[in-house]
């Protein structure tokens, strides 16, 4: 098992390198000089050259890429073109906020999505089922930006229950987490529901009933665990997306997270920061995928034996 984990972690490395190359290429080869964007309209050509020299934006593409990767291997992610600060320090400072946001949103997603999906499946075609499907559709369709502002207007401005911006206390995270979770709750409800429905049709569920088990027991003990496999995948994927892509939510609620860092850097072509953020997100997604696979093995003994079997 440990060997399996190690192999997966190592497999992550070429993926991250590949991604870094693609992003580096895109950022460097598309039009738009960082110098012009950062220095402003009054900078002369010599200013631009001074800047480029200081930031290491010289030499051809391959030289720059290799230099950059060399730095990365030693833990040096360079300095931000825009602020001249250490990129890694900037990124690390932003991670806690995004982590809290993603975790909170994931918790809401799970606490609402899974039970509603389960109930929908058990009471298929009932009013509960139809209304939860409707709500799911509604929340996927509503743009996060709009939802966030609406929630802010209602709960912060009108009712004055919650703060609108910033990260003063845990209260500040409630609206952003709800906003971020909204679209994902929908997908989780649907996948839980369909997974449950599929399991309910299985023969061994019939066996369980034939043994005299009550519906409650059948659902809790037999259906649920078997239905969890695809659900776990979706939870994992969604969490990874939240970690890397909560950009809109962070912007609307003025949260100092990774998303806002990414937006600012992309707009200003602050390449070192963009690279660091993207690689970070890639690593996060890779790790989460690994955790999901490990969870699979934990849930489903057939998969566990496949992994250990490889060892033998």
């Amino acid at each position: 098992m440990a060997k399996f984990v190690l192999k997966r972690v190592l497999a992550l490395i070429p993926v991250v390198i590949g991604i870094s190359f693609i992003i580096f290429a895109i950022m460097n080869l598309t039009p738009g000089e960082p110098a012009r964007l950062i220095l402003g309209p009054y900078a002369s050509q010599s200013d631009v050259e001074t800047f480029n020299q200081a930031m290491g934006i010289e030499g051809n593409f391959w030289e720059r890429y290799l230099n950059y990767m060399k730095g990365v291997l030693t833990g040096d992610f360079g300095i931000s073109y825009r602020t001249q600060n250490d990129v890694l320090a900037e990124l690390v400072a932003r991670i806690p906020c995004t982590l809290i946001l993603a975790t909170g949103a994931a918790a809401i997603m799970v606490l609402i999505g899974i039970p509603v999906g389960i109930i929908s499946a058990i009471k298929q075609y009932s009013i509960l089922d139809y209304s939860s499907m409707f709500m799911a559709l509604l929340f996927t369709s509503v743009p996060g930006f709009w939802l966030g502002i609406m929630l802010m207007l209602l709960f912060s401005l009108q009712l004055e229950w919650l703060p609108a911006t910033g990260v003063e206390s845990w209260l500040s995270y409630i609206l952003p987490c709800i906003t971020l979770a909204a679209a994902f709750v929908a997908s989780l409800i649907r996948i839980t529901r369909s997974s449950m429905l599929e399991i309910i049709r299985q023969d061994y569920i019939r066996t369980a009933y034939a043994k005299g088990a009550s519906e409650k027991r059948v659902v809790m003990k037999h259906v649920l665990r078997n239905a969890m496999l695809p659900v776990v995948t979706v939870v994992g994927i969604n969490f990874a997306i939240m970690m890397g892509g909560a950009i809109v939510t962070e912007s609307v609620f003025a949260l100092p997270g990774v998303g806002t860092l990414l937006i600012t850097s992309v707009r200003m072509k602050d390449i070192p920061v963009v690279m660091a953020v993207v690689m970070f997100v890639a690593v996060v997604i890779g790790i989460i995928n690994l955790l999901v696979d490990l969870a699979y093995a934990y849930i489903d003994p057939r998969i566990k034996s496949k992994y250990s079997a490889r060892k033998r």
Partner: peptide
């Protein structure tokens, strides 16, 4: 306070933040 969005900033102002 660093805001990223003008709508958010306006709401924060109205709210007294």
């Amino acid at each position: 306070r660093i805001m990223n969005d003008t709508s958010t900033a306006a709401i924060a102002l109205e709210r007294g933040e």
